[in-house]
Amino acid sequence: MKTLILSTAVLALSAGLAMAQTVRMGTEGAYPPYNFINDAGEVDGFEREFGDELCARAELTCEWVTNDWDSIIPNLVSGNYDTIIAGMSINDERDEVIDFTQDYIPPATSSYVALSEDADLGGVVAAQTSTLQSQYISESDATLLEFATADEIITALKSGEADAVFFDTDYLVPIVEESGGELMFIGETVTLGRGTGMGIRESDTELKDKFDAAITSMKEDGSLNEMLIKWFGEGTDTY
């Protein structure tokens, strides 16, 4: 009986500890609609809403942190935050260093955007550095022009430095729509990667399982689809 009480107490205590666990969510904050800094200076976007919902379901306290895209993986493995939730596509190269949860956005399509219909897609194509798109362009015949942020590739296109940009369709849609006809989609869209997942340290399997369970529950009750449509529009791929 005594041991029973003791083990119950230990269980209750460890459950209490689990409740109090703070998870630091690392994101880029420069990638609308996935994640961006809103007018109030806070992290906002699809991943903010989605991440907060996941944390509520997994009963975790979450804190949002922004980090430069280039050093987002090194800072995760050295423990400055516990997850990467930054529109990061799952691929083999990254999977060697960190672990991914199951995907929460279906494999994204990427598109070319140019200033005119007859732009040369085999010429100079701009893409954000260390993305699936930049890898795709470097393996094609076109000349790759890399920039640190997505914003800069659009600037390069407008200034004529690049013939076209190749990037995530969801990111490009609002920009093309609001350019007043200056920018247009050309060529075929391409599906790259295995979807977008949360990056988690390889040793952190417990946290990974918690988030996986929360994502599954959101997929099952349809709330994930609602959120995808809210942020990416009616035409987006859902589960």
Binding site: A20, Q21, T22, V23, R24, T61, E63, W64, V65, V77, S78, G79, D82, V97, R201, E202, S203
Partner: peptide, 23 residues
């Protein structure tokens, strides 16, 4: 552990439960 740097939660600097301001 591989590329991960793991210390116990109490050794984190600052503690991961600390408010963002401390970080």
């Amino acid at each position: 552990q591989g590329s991960d740097f793991i210390v116990c939660a109490a050794a984190k600097m600052p503690l991961s439960t600390a408010p963002q301001a401390w970080h």
